[in-house]
Write a protein that binds this DNA or RNA. Sequence first.
DNA 1: CTGGTGACTTATC
DNA 2: AGATAAGCCACCA
Length: 106
Amino acid sequence: MTPFTEKVIAIIQRIPTGKVMTYGQVARHAGSPRAARQVVRILHSMSRSYHLPWHRVINAKGQIALRDDESYQEQRMSLEAEGVMVGLHGGIDLEKYLWEPACMEH
DNA sequence: CTGGTGACTTATC
DNA sequence: AGATAAGCCACCA
């Protein structure tokens, strides 16, 4: 287990219910602003082994990263169950649901 | 070490 | 605004 992976896991586990984070944010808080893609790989690898709320992690466009897929429906359902309103295109109000661990942007 | 990869991100058309 | 291209980083074979 690498430090970066541990950080990413820790950050994702700290996402509160009803909130979401973008891959870029997770990567930035993990120490590597450009490692969003690596975050994706970690989610793929760890989500099945660890108890990670991967459905609370979305892309920078504020939409569910997955396309029309079973996993997409599952993620969308999970988010709605937590109070996050998801549009037909997986659109999510980042202004409302985006969560920043330290709120250092403002 | 080299190359491949990925649920991304940003910049250009 | 939607599509394309290139960049980017950590991990793995």
